[in-house]
Computed example of a mutant assay.
Amino acid sequence: MTPLATSAAVSDATTSASPSGLTVRKLELDLSQGFERHWHGGDAFLSQYHNALSMSFPVGEQSFIDAVRDCAKLLPRTPEHALLHEAAAQFIGQEATHRHIHGLYNAHLEKQGLVNRWQHWATARIEFAHSRNVSPRHMLAVTAAYEHLTAVLADFMLRHDTTLDKAEPKMQMLWRWHAAEETEHRAVAYDLYNAMQGNYAWRVRWYIYALLVFSFDSGRQTVLNLWHDGTLFKPGTWWGALKYFWGRNGAIWHVTGPLLAYFRRDFHPDQEAYTAPEQQTRGIAQRWLKDNEKSFRVVR
């Protein structure tokens, strides 16, 4: 059984009619009235860090859509690849919904006076890659790398991040929905890269690139957000950052191992340390989606 087939097999059959196990959903969330400036439990750092992540998504997810679509076109439409083609189509649908909702999210951030530089940094890098005729397979390797990064962050958010419990309810909903769907489709770009005969050396090179770029861009956009927010130099801001990353249940302790796992030659996104399905991130994501199914509409 292929990794993708395994993913589909463990998916809750009630959540998807797609053979790939992926479902395209439209989140029924009204952002027209916006949200508080410090929507994350009143914490300036947590609010502006997550806002920074949101700022990257519309451009980033469009590039992921393009990379998967371009490589799927090159993959023969044979029976052995049928499930992967279906997964690619569903991946594109999910990422398109994420791009849309974060576009609405980011529009409200502009009204709050924040300035989205990340979208321009990302656009410039993508345009440079196209100008140098970087191959679709390399763009897919970058996508697979970022998909692993987001899947690891999604695992932390769904499994360990209790700070989100204090956030505004609609923002809790938005971020956990996004995390659940990132968990669902975490293996698609990776499996497609392997099907395109992508090699280990380039997979790792592009992953190092993604780690460095993500760390740098997320840091400088967060600092920029805090500057415009007027909280950059307040001690409480950086105390919140220290607790989030390095506290007793901080992100660093939970994400470092999974991030390093990508360097293994035998790595696959659906491999997990938890053997019981209900303890795996995929199982947690499926339970959350089932418990909150009234908050979204299934598109396909």
Results as ranks from 00 to 15, higher is better:
1 M>D: 11
2 T>M: 03
7 S>D: 14
15 T>H: 10
17 A>W: 09
17 A>R: 14
19 P>G: 02
20 S>E: 03
22 L>N: 05
23 T>L: 10
24 V>K: 01
24 V>C: 09
25 R>P: 02
26 K>N: 13
27 L>W: 01
27 L>E: 02
33 Q>V: 08
38 H>K: 13
38 H>F: 13
39 W>H: 08
43 D>S: 14
43 D>I: 01
44 A>S: 11
45 F>R: 01
53 L>D: 03
53 L>V: 13
54 S>H: 07
56 S>M: 14
58 P>S: 00
62 Q>A: 09
65 I>V: 12
66 D>E: 13
67 A>M: 07
68 V>D: 02
73 K>L: 11
76 P>H: 05
77 R>T: 14
78 T>I: 09
79 P>V: 06
80 E>G: 07
81 H>C: 09
81 H>I: 01
86 E>G: 04
89 A>E: 13
90 Q>E: 12
90 Q>F: 08
92 I>G: 01
93 G>C: 03
95 E>L: 00
101 I>K: 00
103 G>C: 00
106 N>L: 02
106 N>I: 03
108 H>S: 05
109 L>C: 10
109 L>N: 09
110 E>P: 01
113 G>C: 04
113 G>R: 04
123 T>I: 08
126 I>N: 12
128 F>G: 05
129 A>M: 14
129 A>Y: 12
131 S>W: 12
135 S>M: 11
136 P>L: 01
137 R>E: 13
140 L>G: 05
146 Y>Q: 12
152 V>G: 05
152 V>D: 03
153 L>Y: 06
159 R>L: 09
164 L>K: 04
168 E>R: 05
173 M>R: 15
178 H>M: 03
181 E>V: 03
181 E>M: 04
192 L>I: 07
192 L>S: 01
197 Q>A: 13
201 A>G: 12
203 R>E: 04
205 R>D: 08
214 F>D: 02
214 F>C: 06
225 N>P: 00
229 D>R: 04
232 L>T: 00
233 F>C: 11
236 G>C: 05
238 W>T: 07
239 W>I: 15
245 F>K: 02
247 G>Y: 07
248 R>T: 14
251 A>I: 13
252 I>E: 13
261 A>P: 00
262 Y>K: 06
267 F>N: 05
279 Q>T: 11
280 Q>F: 01
281 T>W: 02
281 T>P: 03
